[in-house]
């Protein structure tokens, strides 16, 4: 399974994602420079965290116009797995690959902390290895993770099982219904604010992020791996 990690100027979790794939799956993974348009040779794409293009204007607002995102859009439309983590999630929202928008944290501070999440839907390619309702510990680190959408979108998200992760305990950023991660209707595109790549070893404080990458691999193997 070949993974691409697009690198924008200002990305800073790109190498962490590359390492996570190497360490957890031992599958091929490549950083892809933002100028590259063609990502068709990859089976999955991880949009990393950071401050793409300095996050000037609005988080993720500039990255959506970069050449590589054309390729990412095509990949998403063709059913390949696309995950956006933190800034990657913000970019997916700006592109419209996921519904809703991101606001500044309600307490107006950056927040970096180990966070407990509840896995709300295990019937996605990203969560199939988790148990329903499982509580997992994955760190957050963001200034704008306050997810917002209008009531009808929220109703749709619920109805279609698109809410994948919720924060347990106190809401760390003011996110509507404590939403931490959502997927698209086809469930091949996931956006999440917490960083699973930061929870893949005991010394990191949690290994709960591993299963996310393992889920992706298991799904791919079952559905596309024969190719």
């Amino acid at each position: 399974m070949r993974f691409a990690v697009p690198v924008f100027p200002g990305s800073n979790c790109d190498l962490d994602c590359v390492h996570a794939i190497e360490d957890v799956l031992q599958e091929p993974v490549e950083p892809v420079w933002h100028q590259e348009e063609d990502v068709s040779r990859f089976d999955a794409i991880i949009l990393p965290g950071g401050f793409s293009y300095g996050d000037y204007l609005r988080t993720g607002a500039l990255a959506r116009f970069s050449p590589v995102m054309k390729g990412v859009k095509q990949a998403a439309e063709s059913g390949k797995l696309v995950i956006g983590i933190c800034n990657g999630f913000q970019i997916l929202l700006e592109m419209g690959l996921l519904p809703g928008a991101m606001l500044t944290n309600d307490h107006l501070q950056f927040r970096c902390e180990m966070q407990t999440l509840i896995v709300e839907n295990v019937e996605t390619p990203f969560t199939c290895k988790y148990a329903p309702g499982e509580a997992i510990r994955i760190p957050i680190a963001h200034m704008s993770g306050n997810y917002f959408c209008d009531p009808s979108t929220l109703a749709e998200l619920k109805q279609n099982g698109q809410i994948v992760f919720r924060y347990a305990g106190d809401n760390p950023n003011g996110s509507i219904e404590k939403i931490a991660g959502i997927c698209n209707r086809k469930r091949n595109v996931l956006g999440m604010m917490p960083h699973p790549e930061r929870a893949i070893a005991d010394w990191m404080g949690s290994e709960d992020g591993k299963k996310l990458f393992q889920s992706m691999f298991a799904y791919w193997k079952e559905n596309c791996g024969a190719a």
Binding site: H19, P139, W203, M204
Partner: peptide, 26 residues
């Protein structure tokens, strides 16, 4: 320290709050 990203680069083995911070050398 919760306002500082202390985990980016995924090398932080001992986060702020102990006597010293520790990062692993990959």
């Amino acid at each position: 320290y919760r306002q500082y990203d202390h985990m980016v680069r995924t090398s932080t083995a001992v986060c702020p709050g102990s006597d010293a911070a520790v990062i692993v050398v990959r």
